[in-house]
Nucleic acid binder design. Structure first.
Lengths: 118, 118
DNA sequence: CGTTAAGGTAACCTTTTAGTGACTACGTTA
DNA sequence: TAACGTAGTCACTAAAAGGTTACCTTAACG
């Protein structure tokens, strides 16, 4: 039963308020510029976008391509290595979809209001 | 490519500093009392243990069985529904294990020191 | 000479999470 | 009568995560 002992390290690279949104954008759209990501994720600000992208880059999930020109141009995309996440994301997504239904059945449609936090 | 859009909701129920540890204990050991969990996870405190267990219970992942006796006895276990998480946890674990090796290869063994955060 | 463009960074502030220590209930044992 | 044991809660503090605003760079455009 000790076969799950490393799942925390996978979780680590996925947590962060905006990482799911960023990954979704890059998976859906392929190569995107900084500004495009910013427009696609309306409530994010530059600092957070930069920060989350840097973390994903550090984990080798996204690739950052800098064009040395003025004004600057920087492109982001899912790296080859990062594409290996798709299995995990799929598993999470499938379970998550089912779980939302399960929660609806238990508590009714308004899930977010009934969660105990803090 | 929109097949990943719900993975965030799965992530939500897994995040929390102590949830991986708690799930691991309950998966490995089956039924456990509050005090046993506390001993098994040395650095957790009662408040956090209670809180994280309550969240897992709310999401129907763990079952809480109260015995009406003095001193109190409360047992926790993974619910039948919660066992459905195993596929996800396995996927996360497998990827996480590989990712740790990948990071070692990129940055050397001392991963934790080289992560950019904040 | 002033403005715009893109992709940031630095200093600072707010909100959310996590952690601490004291306290409670109540039947049993010493 | 006092202390023990279990499973908590409460009020409070500390730390981490997230957010805001101002500012930087440098070429080109008017």
């Amino acid at each position: 039963m000790k076969e799950y002992c490393k799942f925390e390290s996978a979780l680590d690279i996925l947590v962060g308020k905006w990482k799911p949104a960023i990954l979704l954008q890059l998976i859906s759209n392929g190569i995107m510029r900084f500004g495009e990501l910013q427009k696609a994720i309306p409530d994010i600000n530059k600092k957070m976008l930069t920060q989350q992208l840097r973390e994903l880059e550090h984990n080798n999930i996204v690739h950052r391509e800098v064009y040395n020109q003025i004004p600057p141009k920087v492109e982001y995309s899912i790296s080859e290595y990062g594409k290996g996440l798709s299995t995990v994301l799929k598993a999470l997504n499938d379970w998550g979809t089912a779980h939302m239904k399960h929660m609806d059945a238990l508590y009714g449609v308004d899930r977010s209001e009934s969660e105990p936090k803090g």
